[in-house]
């Protein structure tokens, strides 16, 4: 039987590294600003949102350090949308490889999302610098921020595996997801503070906080910027409801990984 390599097999890691390096190198080939675009994109998005929502519509006047607050949300959102966008398309984009060589397919998905991870790391640095400039004092709770980023990455991977596997056969999935992310953007408190939703209807605010993306964004803001942030944990009373975002992520990741593994045997024929 053809040897089935273990998940963390050294050879797989080398392939992962090579593919990620290639992706990373090629992404910004031929652009004058090159890699700078990775940082500029969320910053520019932030600038637009800031002018429209903070300056014109006067959102978030009651929140300390609102610009940092907004930037954190945009950076995390950019990561999520980039990660899933790349991850879902990965198998199709790398169809040439899948048809010609045999290797564990999850490597392609992971490598395509790692560029987003690298971008996020740099963007988080930008957020931290921005936070310090705007007068947020560093605290020990900054240290647990990576935990929430891992959580968001787990969510992105779960979605990428599940939808990426379906997308091999039904290419509509990637397009549907593109539209869906547009809608999802508004279900998370990125441009509007959750307090605004709470003022209208506390129940609505609670439902919004069940969204794992909202939970992560709010938790990062809570630990990074201000303890006044409303989080899933401090706003919802019932312990089971508090756990809903985590449950969603775990279920998506497990189901996604299992489904992907089951289908991956036939990717070479279908892609």
């Amino acid at each position: 039987m053809v040897k089935i390599p273990r998940v963390w097999d050294r050879k797989n890691m080398i392939l992962l590294k090579e593919l990620t390096k290639t992706d990373f190198k090629l992404r910004y080939q031929g652009s004058v600003l090159g890699y700078l675009w990775a940082i500029l994109r969320p910053l520019l998005m932030f600038a637009i949102l800031y002018v429209v929502f903070s300056q014109i519509l006067k959102f978030g006047d009651d929140i300390p350090h609102y610009p940092v607050y907004l930037l954190t949300g945009t950076v995390l959102w950019s990561f999520f949308s980039e990660c899933t966008g790349q991850g879902i398309q990965a198998m199709v984009m790398r169809g040439d490889l899948i048809r010609k060589v045999s290797f564990p397919k999850y490597i392609v998905v992971v490598s395509s999302t790692l560029t987003a991870v690298i971008n996020l790391c740099i963007n988080i640095l930008v957020v931290v610098i921005f936070a310090l400039i705007s007068g947020v004092s560093p605290s020990l709770s900054w240290l647990i921020v990576p935990m929430f980023i891992v959580e968001l990455y787990a969510l992105s991977l779960g979605i990428s595996f599940l939808l990426g596997a379906i997308n091999v056969k039904y290419r509509d999935v990637a397009s549907i997801w593109e539209v869906l992310t547009q809608a999802l953007f508004y279900t998370a408190p990125i441009i509007y503070p959750i307090s605004m939703a709470a003022a209208m209807s506390p129940t609505a605010a609670k439902i919004l906080l069940l969204n794992p993306i909202s939970q992560v964004i709010q938790d990062v803001r809570y630990n990074l910027i201000t303890k006044e942030t409303v989080t899933t944990w401090n706003y919802i009373d019932n312990i089971w409801w508090k756990a809903v975002p985590i449950i969603i992520i775990v279920v998506l990741l497990v189901v996604g990984a299992l489904y992907f593994r089951k289908k991956s045997k036939y990717f070479a024929e279908e892609v």
Partner: peptide, 16 residues
């Protein structure tokens, strides 16, 4: 877009 050298290593990694 990759150099000859980079392509050799990428190709090699793909072959295991």
């Amino acid at each position: 877009e990759l150099t000859g050298r980079e392509n050799i290593y990428l190709n090699g990694a793909l072959l295991g």
